[in-house]
Design a protein around this nucleic acid. Structure first.
Lengths: 343, 343
DNA sequence: TATTGACAAGTAAACGATTCCATACTAAGT
DNA sequence: ACTTAGTATGGAATCGTTTACTTGTCAATA
């Protein structure tokens, strides 16, 4: 039994003592950054195994200033897509020995701020941020200048902002959705949007307006409901928009979770899709293959977006001062059977 | 403009210099753990604001050995429920100023080991583990003795294991599912299980056996398929089990993602549920309200399970040597319309 | 043989905080 | 007025690494 491991964690000092060398030599063996003679190498390797030594990242970080930690701040984590994105990011950064720190701000800018500071205090190496939109200047001025930053589904308009952006082309996508409804003969089109404080909400709203104008249709604010991208707000919006004497013939959902909420409302109330109301969604829906109706939609492929975000943040860590990059993915319309054709 | 902040991060030394006091005093002001005279207190507070100082967690951890970091290791992150659990854990621990480190092992024990070591190296304060099942002894002997550990959906049989467990009662739940099928007149019941290396797989398999024996039915291995709890394995299992000359009348899925995979297969092939085949699922399915068929199932409420796991791990951090605790949630059968009644 | 150079291995100073211990100063008791 | 006790503050060690600098050995060359 040459099992020397106590319950106490062993340090580089213990390894050095066990191997009969200095701690500097042990460090060199571990990091393989200087030449160490083969015999000593073997001795140290054995001592490492014998003592059960695992290098301490905390102490390492003290010197190297590198935590190999990426922070991912999500504003509404209930969206399963955000977690698919988290997974994709994690998968990419893992290959470079990074770990992912995840948190959710529940759409609260104050909490977002708290997390940002906590993560900075932890000296994260990079940040992927799905912001609430409440801290644009602070992020531009204080965060992004010192911390490699990638924004998801958000654009930061401030001049000072240094960082990258991953998004789908919201204006293009919602234009396609609206146009499709119009071309199927719909005129009274209700809109379920996200709030306009964030670029995602604005862009997608813009695309809808583009299409309406192009076809000379009136943009009627009474048919608009702006929620917070959540399932609940989708449900509430659908209720509000469709309990009128003259309900719209179609609903354009600018967020996938809002579409889920709206469709749950319709199904619950026995409102048939597409016979009673047509529905289109910006963003994919979980288990779409198993749904009673196959929604016409603009899919956002979260694994692709997440992978891109991971790549960009790693790249920016390598090269913090390169120009901002915007990864905007084109959108494709997938035709399901959730839209009634009046033509 | 008394804006002294350069791009350089300021340390406790800078604050001390700015306030004209020693670093020890600054530390005392920050931590409020010793008396400091009101005047100096004010001076230091001002200096902190002036320098834009944020305490460095890394350096703190060097002394205090406390990272306020909880690790969450998931074996198959593609299951949306795992991410709902992650969210619930994060929500609980956030209130005690902990952050969550998330990773996925893709069912690879080697990767799990790598992550475990990486997290130990990061000196995480606690661990929630959804293990692949490949490292039971190591976890019992090396991990759990020094690190507050909570297992999700897994039981560690080793005597040395020190830690808590969160699970639903798998034997009970799958017994209920099997019994329900039998009571609806099904006799040829196919089984889509998870692998038996993990307790979840074994317990649920056991419950099925209990029910079959109770009703004097033959347990026919030809009707069993053991996959890895994933959607893909569910799909493959369904294909294997239902491309025979005399297919079973019912499918008992012991994992929610497997059920998803199987149902996608059935729908794709035009096999009607429940007319052609009855399906029951252990575990809930995302957006079940929108599905073409409402599966009869045992729901596992991930937010509740996650919350429990978060509470247990925090509690164990406070009190590392208390006896192991097992949080086993009872199961309820939800009757949908995915089972044909032959009686 | 003496001098130089190469290079392996050790010594010690960081990194940024916390905290034990020492010190100096105030106030009270005889 | 002198000792003593109490206490606010500073000095310095410490946590576990990395790495610049130093030391010492040995082979090669003149």
């Amino acid at each position: 039994m040459n099992n020397n491991e106590n319950t106490q964690k062993s340090t580089i000092k213990d390894v050095a003592k066990a191997a009969g060398v200095s701690i500097a030599t042990v460090s060199r063996v571990i990091n393989k950054n200087y030449y160490v003679s083969p015999e000593i190498n073997v001795k140290v390797q054995n001592a490492i195994v014998q003592t059960g030594y695992v290098p301490d990242s905390i102490a390492r970080t003290m010197k190297s200033n590198n935590t190999n930690l990426i922070g991912f701040i999500v504003s509404n984590i209930s969206n399963p897509h955000m977690m698919t994105i988290a997974r994709a990011i994690e998968k990419v950064i893992r290959e470079s020995n990074y770990n992912l720190l995840v948190c959710s701000t529940e759409n609260d800018p104050t909490l977002e701020l708290k997390y940002l500071n906590a993560f900075i205090s932890r000296r994260i190496s990079g940040l992927v941020l799905h912001s609430t939109g409440g801290n644009e200047e602070y992020i531009a001025q204080k965060i992004s200048s010192t911390l490699p930053t990638v924004l998801m589904f958000r654009h930061n308009e401030c001049k000072e902002f240094v960082g990258d952006t991953v998004d789908t082309d919201g204006r293009q996508g919602s234009y396609k959705l609206a146009k499709h409804l119009i071309e199927c003969g719909h005129r009274r089109i209700a809109l379920l949007g996200g709030h306009l404080e964030v670029s995602t909400g604005r862009d997608r709203y813009q695309g809808y307006q583009d299409a309406m104008r192009e076809f000379g249709l009136e943009i009627n604010p009474e048919l608009h409901y702006f929620g917070d991208f959540s399932e609940l707000s989708g449900l509430q919006g659908a209720r509000k928009l469709f309990t009128t004497s003259n309900p719209p013939t179609a609903l354009l959902c600018l967020a996938n979770m809002a579409a889920v909420g709206a469709m749950k409302y319709f199904r619950d109330k026995g409102i048939h899709v597409p016979d009673d109301v047509s529905v289109v969604s910006y963003g994919d829906i979980e288990n779409v293959e198993l749904m009673w109706v196959n929604p016409t939609r603009i899919p956002q492929i979260p694994s692709v977006l997440g992978q891109k975000a991971g790549e960009l943040v790693l790249d920016r860590i390598q090269n913090p001062h390169r120009p901002n990059r915007e990864a905007t993915f084109d959108t494709d319309l997938i035709i399901g059977n959730s839209v009634k054709n009046y033509i």
